[in-house]
Write a protein that binds this DNA or RNA. Structure first.
Length: 545
RNA sequence: GUGGGAGUAGCUCAACUGGCAGAGCACCGGACUGUGGCUCCGGUUGUUGCGGGUUCGAUUCCCGUCUCCCACCCCA
């Protein structure tokens, strides 16, 4: 039997009613704040996410669905031929899996890579279809490890590019590291590397740049849709998951960088969560400063950790090296005294960032939105700056965060666009629905009426009547006369119809139908013209469809 | 990716140390051929997740694998 693949699932009625409830409440609220919908493609060029989310983040390095689209095979042949010509004395080939930097990140490779040993020196051959800054960053970060792996032998880098153009700066910096860069231009069609979107902000910013949305001034955009991450599934965490998010983005002169926008979006979220009926939504708020502040802070944090890290738990020792900010997430009691003495980002904010943060807080107080300043709140994605926030709700333990977001003032530039400060959030719809299910039972309305035709030819009358009623916005389920009346009424109550309409020969001739109330059991006769009004009067208030 | 738990009817779950695979709910038919719910009678519930092994015999024991759940990693 074919089953839904791991980490994906079907959303079935009646649960889908709850999803629709959440989405329409969100649309309503967004409308009131003048947000408009944007729909971006479900897959994008891999580079978009690598550059915005951050190449070294877990999302990009191991959790994306990436594949090669088009091209590819022909250039691999050319590359093989080139290798045979230029490395006649090839002594060893190292497959990508064996690279020192490979491991988990290999899943997101950008092109065929192979290492060749020749005359006692090593060459890393990477076909990356146009060397960009990512290659350089990668080289700087891993160049030394790479050399060490080969016992200090000389190493060189051969970039195989489909479109030529290795930036000069790239070659220069590589040379200072003792790495020689050669370039081979293959005139073949380059394959594209595509990725199912792991989040939607990058796509929105890409669209902003591509369509010059800066000309519209301040853009207030929202999206609702599926995202994809190749994580280990867990409750409320799926490989295809749904996010509802919104962004305020625009050129600086539109005021998109102002604290007012931070406050507006946070107040909107508070309103939305309350509208949805989330109990005790709690806003955790912090400022992570700008890029420069964070670099300084990161160093300070590393310096502070260095002497004490040895006393901490194994996880923290690892975090201290890979991602010091995450040390703050540690829950081991023994580590807490150490963590409490670590430097906090708030002491490293420059004047503008501090002022921005103070303003946001003042505006929130004015708007009556309560919040908890949280010095330890950090965001994992590279593009965040200044305001960072998270909403949690009372229950649900470790997974009580239902949305997160923040400001991303430099993102557009890093994607090659104009300056476009922005702030946004993304809400995990799966978890939100889960939380709502915990606190309220699903309500699903049945049809207003069930038409029960009895006797020869009555199906024709029934379908006619059904069309007539449906045009008048009556929700109608249609029965089939080949079943006995007993069966029809049974079905009518099973589907949750409020009324059953009996359509027989006598009724049709007189144009007066018997209408049975399936809750009270009462039965009355209603002239055809009065049917719509009578049937709709039975609607209960809890009806959600 | 790591560690732990669980997979038996559509659903919720039984089956003592290895001995004919069961109950409730739901579903279908009838009692009742133009009047549902209640009641009564009858019926199907099935590759015990999948594959292999041990055994006269495996839902049960062993190995592999898949999926889900929980925790970790990480995180909107």
């Amino acid at each position: 039997m074919i089953k839904a693949v791991r980490g994906t699932r079907d959303l079935l009625p009646p649960e889908t009613a709850l999803w629709n409830f959440v989405e329409s409440a969100a649309r309503d609220v967004f409308r009131a704040y003048n947000f408009q919908e944007i729909r971006t493609p479900i897959f994008e060029e891999t580079q978009l996410f690598a550059r915005s989310v951050g190449e070294e983040t877990d999302i990009v390095s191991k959790e994306m669905y990436t594949w090669e689209d088009g091209g590819g095979s022909a250039d691999q042949e050319l590359l093989d031929a080139w290798l045979r010509t230029h490395f006649r004395e090839v002594t060893k080939l190292v497959q990508p899996q064996e690279f020192p930097t490979a491991g988990r990140s290999q899943r997101t490779r950008y092109g065929p890579s192979v290492q060749v040993e020749w005359n006692g020196s090593w060459t890393l051959v990477r076909a990356r279809y146009g060397a960009k800054n990512q290659d350089l960053r990668h080289l700087v970060q891993h160049g030394n490890a790479w050399r060490e792996m080969h016992g200090g032998k000389p190493v060189s880098l051969l970039l195989v590019t489909a479109r030529g153009s290795v930036p000069e700066a790239f070659t220069t910096i590589a040379r200072t590291m003792g790495i020689v860069v050669d370039e081979l231009e293959l005139r073949v069609e380059a394959p594209q590397f595509l990725t199912l979107r792991p989040e939607n902000t990058a796509g929105v910013v890409r669209a902003y740049i591509e369509h010059n949305l800066e000309n519209r001034g301040l853009n207030k955009l929202f999206y609702i849709g599926p995202q994809f991450r190749r994580e280990r599934p867990q409750k409320g965490r799926y490989r295809q998951f749904y996010q509802i998010g919104a962004e305020i983005i625009g050129p600086r002169h539109s005021g998109s960088d102002k604290p007012l926008r931070d406050a507006e979006i946070l107040e909107m979220l508070d309103t939305l969560l309350r509208r949805l009926g989330i109990r005790n939504p709690t806003l955790h708020l912090n400022s992570v400063g700008c890029a420069a502040d964070r670099a300084v802070y990161n160093e300070a944090l590393r310096a502070a950790l260095a002497p004490v890290v040895i006393q901490m738990c194994a996880d923290c020792q690892r975090r201290a090296v890979t991602n010091p900010l995450r040390v703050f997430d540690c829950k081991v009691p023994g580590d807490q005294p150490i963590i409490e003495k670590l430097p906090l980002i708030k002491n490293y904010l420059d004047k503008d960032c501090q002022e921005h943060f103070d303003n946001v807080k003042a505006l929130l107080r004015a708007a009556g939105v309560s919040f908890i300043p949280n010095d330890r709140l950090v965001r994992g994605l590279d593009y965040y700056s200044r305001t960072a926030f998270e909403f949690t709700h009372g229950a649900l333990g470790a997974q009580n965060a239902i949305l997160g977001g923040g400001r991303y003032d430099g993102l557009s530039e890093s994607l090659g666009g104009p300056p476009a400060p922005g702030i946004g959030f993304a809400m995990g719809e799966d978890r939100l629905v889960l939380a709502l299910q915990d606190q309220t039972p699903t309500i699903l309305g049945g049809p207003d009426a069930f038409i029960a035709p009895i006797g020869e030819g009555m199906n024709r009358e029934a379908i006619k009547l059904a069309k007539e009623l449906r045009e008048k916005k009556v929700i109608v389920e249609l029965g089939d006369r080949s079943f006995r009346l007993k069966k029809l009424l049974e079905t009518a109550s099973k589907v949750g119809a409020r009324y059953a309409i009996i359509v027989g020969e006598d009724e049709t001739n007189a144009d007066i139908f018997k209408v049975k109330d399936l809750i009270t059991g009462e039965q009355i006769s209603v002239p055809r013209a009065e049917l719509p009004q009578k049937l709709q009067s039975g609607r209960s208030q809890g009806r959600s469809s």
